[in-house]
């Protein structure tokens, strides 16, 4: 069974899996995120279409106000 890695955790890969589907499966509800798939940034407007390949390394960063 193909897997992907999301912030170091294993997740089962699905046919046609999008970035949004990954967020849903991980139950991430954070408001402001930056997402990289295999080191490449995926812009927010592309999360609904952008496909995550099997074996992908996904990094989800949570942005918090304060500076």
């Amino acid at each position: 069974m193909a897997q992907i890695t999301v912030n170091g955790q294993q997740l089962e890969w699905e046919e046609g899996m999008t970035v949004n589907r990954v967020l849903e499966k991980m139950n991430y509800s954070w408001r402001l995120l930056v997402i990289k798939v295999n080191g490449t940034l995926i812009k927010k407007e592309a999360w609904n279409e952008s496909k995550v390949p099997p074996g992908a390394e996904v990094s989800v960063f949570h942005l918090l106000s304060g500076g």
Partner: peptide, 19 residues
Amino acid sequence: FDDAGEKEMLIETWQSLFP
């Protein structure tokens, strides 16, 4: 930056322009 939305904008724009 202070604001999280501004942080997101800056990271997205910079990484798209200059990966």
